[in-house]
Simulated assay, not measured.
Amino acid sequence: MDSAPTVAVHVLVFPWPRQGLINPMLHLATALLDAGVHVTFLHTEHNLSRIASARAPPPRLRLLSIPDGLPDDHPRHYMELMESMCTTGSAAYRALLLSSLLPADDVPPVTCVVADGTMPFATDIAEDLGIPALAFCTFSACSSLAFMSMPKVFELGENPFPADDPVCGVSGMEGILRR
């Protein structure tokens, strides 16, 4: 009986470049490593240096980075970072994925991408290149509700946001959600 050659599993984990979203993805990467999977943790050049200096990454975790397109001293506000990641970051990500389709330095080709759900370009590019991909949302249920409630906040005219006032029009978040 002939058996097909086994292909080593290699997952590329790509979180959104914010600490609260990096940490859960690092936990996922560590769990995958513990299961014997090859893992590459991809991040922005700006954040990767901060991650590496904050604590030693797990052994066998391969760290790679791409530029986010913003200067080092930029405050990286959400919308500016998103725009830059969708242009500069996505082009660098595509090039990196193309190069990762070939084995190198005892590292098998990337066989799957797990990207943060806030970066649809990451799964789109992977799938365009024939790499299975999934979006993994690491933010809390409260954050999800807050994001989904933003149209209602605008509809109620509760913007622009004055400092630390409560948002009153979002069901279930009264007394919790603040501007």
Rank of each mutant, 00 (worst) to 15 (best):
D68W: 03
C137A: 12
H10L: 10
G20S: 05
K152T: 14
A8R: 15
L48N: 03
H46V: 01
R178W: 11
V13T: 09
T30R: 12
D128K: 06
H27A: 07
M119T: 06
F41N: 02
L102T: 15
V153N: 05
P151F: 12
D116W: 02
E155R: 07
N23G: 00
C142I: 01
F121H: 07
L98F: 01
P108H: 06
P59T: 07
L81D: 01
S65M: 05
V9G: 01
H10V: 09
T30W: 04
V167M: 10
P132Y: 00
F154E: 11
D106E: 13
F161C: 13
M79N: 11
T111A: 08
D72C: 03
P15Y: 00
D34M: 12
V167I: 15
F147Y: 14
S149W: 11
G169L: 06
M119Q: 08
P120Q: 10
F41V: 05
T88N: 00
L156I: 06
S49T: 13
L96D: 03
T88K: 10
V110L: 03
A126C: 13
S143P: 05
L32H: 03
D164A: 14
T30E: 13
S84F: 07
M119H: 05
P160H: 13
K152W: 04
N159F: 15
S140A: 15
P17S: 02
E158A: 14
L33Q: 08
M173V: 10
R60F: 05
Y93F: 15
D2E: 13
F161S: 11
G20Q: 04
L97R: 05
I176M: 11
L156P: 04
A135D: 12
F14V: 11
A92E: 06
A52M: 09
S3C: 07
A95K: 15
H74Y: 13
L96P: 02
Y78C: 02
T87A: 11
A126G: 07
P58Y: 07
D72Q: 09
A35I: 05
L81R: 00
H74T: 08
R55V: 04
T40D: 04
M25R: 00
S140Y: 06
V153C: 07
L129I: 09
V9T: 15
C112N: 03
D164N: 14
P108S: 08
Q19D: 10
C142R: 09
N47F: 13
E45W: 01
P17T: 00
N23P: 05
S90A: 15
P132R: 12
L129M: 14
E155T: 04
V167H: 02
V114D: 06
N47D: 12
T44N: 06
I125W: 00
R50S: 12
L81I: 09
D72K: 11
A54I: 04
S84W: 03
V7R: 15
D116K: 03
V114W: 02
N23L: 13
L28A: 12
L42N: 02
P132C: 08
A4Y: 04
H74M: 07
T40E: 06
D116T: 03
C142H: 09
F147E: 02
I66Y: 04
R62P: 00
G117Y: 02
H38E: 04
L42C: 14
G117P: 01
M148T: 12
S100G: 07
M85C: 09
R94H: 07
I66W: 00
S65C: 12
V39N: 07
L61F: 08
G89F: 00
P24S: 09
W16K: 01
I131H: 01
